[in-house]
Amino acid sequence: MGSLIECEDVWKIYRVGDVEVQALRGLSLTIAQGEFVAIMGSSGSGKSTLMNILGCLDQPTKGRYRLNGIEVDNLKPDRLAGIRNQQIGFVFQSFNLIPRTSALENAQLPLFYRGLSLKEQRAQAEAALRRVGLQGREQHYPTQLSGGQQQRVAIARALVTSPSLLLADEPTGNLDTQSSREIMKILETLNRDEGITIILVTHEMDVAASAAREIVIKDGQVLSDRVTKAKPTSSTVGV
């Protein structure tokens, strides 16, 4: 089995007026299926820029990015949308739920664009909400949920499509310690039990501790890349 993510000499250059900002400078990275990676680095180092490219929301200015064996660095917007829908789940720092729309409908959203029947959408979204412990809150609006609960709805929305990759850019950045711990427990479970590859950006050491690999970015390049936990060999146990 090949790697899930292969980045090769990826550059991202923004132009603001006459000023050129090099957010990523020839970054190369390989991540295998089933890994749990924490990305760290100081503010402005290019973490979010990298995440956007990995999530097919944005494309590199230069360089190659292969996801699941597909060259995605020069695909059309609609193809990228299809890939996001099929393979990628996002969790944002600011939750980004659709306002005045129930938890269930928020969790349904990706399936909506898959053209599933309403019944299937409902059933799968309910199951996803159950997995993040939100059974009984299906009809709540975002304003009727705590921050932690909102982030769990966002995770349900991300995993409802059974993605191969889950990207979380500072998912606990707006949460208290207790809620952060709950969110991280959910992510750990998803990675361990379902083999979903998780890439997480964080500034907090204890959050990063959940991951098995830690990549530090500086000035748009990989500064360090190390395994922090022994990888449990997938074939060994039926945990």
């Binding site: 999530g55 949308a81 996001r84 829908n85 996002f90 980004n96 659709i98 959203l109 664009y113 499509t161």
Partner: peptide, 8 residues
């Protein structure tokens, strides 16, 4: 958000 989750 809709675009991120796959709206074309």
């Amino acid at each position: 958000v809709r675009m991120a989750v796959g709206a074309k």
